[in-house]
């Protein structure tokens, strides 16, 4: 069976610094995978390599068996690699309707249409509402994004990414900055993601990681320290030493 996402010997160096060192990842279709590691472990660099923001110094990245390491950001998105951002990257002046419609239009190959206004294609509109409903965003979908509560903006982050119909979705600390009382809303949304989408969760919140993930990869100093099931990782003394012990 082809893996949904695979990296082979992925490496990134900045001058003398090795930010990502020989990383091998193997994710099956529909996997719920978490990527953890202390600050400076190279999680962000790894995401940037996967999504095409950075070019790898060596190694390969395969999405559904196809090498994507040389592709640009948009091309990878079109091939089904979606992501969210640790710090909200939304369009402050656009409403959630317009934001999600952008993603749906681009995915359905209608993003370049200049001769008809947004919303005149029923299929696009249906899909936009479906996505917004899934994340409980319909109530405030007509207000500019900047006026939404922070928690709702975090949900919109995931909604936009899902609207690109990714095969693999990278969630970069989806609950970052969300107050304790509202985190469950994010976790529920993440848990309710479609089963056929492969999800990679990058997260500091261990409760969330242990509740959500099936398997966990621990990154330390740019390299994979270990990989295993939730039980294996939580019992691993090395992981406790370098990571869990810290927090």
């Amino acid at each position: 069976m082809t893996l949904a996402l695979e990296t082979i010997g992925l490496k990134k160096t900045f001058g003398g610094l090795t930010a990502t060192n020989d990383v091998h990842l193997r994710l099956e279709k529909g996997a719920r995978h978490a990527l953890i590691g202390p600050n400076g472990a190279g999680k962000t660099t790894l995401i940037n390599l996967l999504t095409g923001v950075l070019a790898p110094s060596a190694g390969q990245i395969r999405l559904d068996g196809v090498e994507i390491g040389g592709m640009g950001v948009e091309a990878r998105v079109r091939r089904g690699l979606g992501r969210t951002f640790q710090i909200n990257q939304l369009f402050p002046d656009l409403t959630p309707i317009e934001t999600v419609a952008l993603a749906v239009s681009e995915r359905s190959g209608r993003g370049g249409d200049w001769w008809r206004r947004v919303g005149t294609r029923g299929a696009v509109l249906d899909e936009v509402v479906d996505v917004l409903e899934r994340f409980g965003l319909t109530e405030r979908m007509r207000e500019p994004t900047r006026t939404l509560p922070y928690g709702k903006q975090r949900l919109l982050e995931i909604a936009v990414a899902l609207a690109t119909k990714p095969r693999v979705l990278l969630l970069d600390e989806p609950a970052a900055g969300v107050p304790e009382g509202e985190r469950h809303e994010i976790l529920e949304a993440v848990e309710a993601l479609p089963k056929d989408v492969t999800v990679v969760l990058i997260e500091h919140d261990m409760d969330m990681v242990f509740r959500f993930a099936e398997r966990i990869t621990v990154l330390v100093a740019g390299a994979v320290l270990t990989e295993g099931t939730v039980a294996e990782i939580s019992d691993d003394p090395r992981v406790r030493a370098v990571y869990l012990g810290e927090g």
């Binding site: 993603a103 001769w115 008809r116």
Partner: peptide
């Protein structure tokens, strides 16, 4: 018509946040 089209909205998206615009798949 153009500014209210998907093309027009994509332009505003690029203006407001190029990083996300790319992540949405906008060329």
């Amino acid at each position: 018509v153009v500014v209210h089209s998907p093309f027009g909205h994509a332009l505003r998206a690029i203006r407001d946040n190029r990083l996300r615009a790319r992540a949405v798949g906008i060329p």
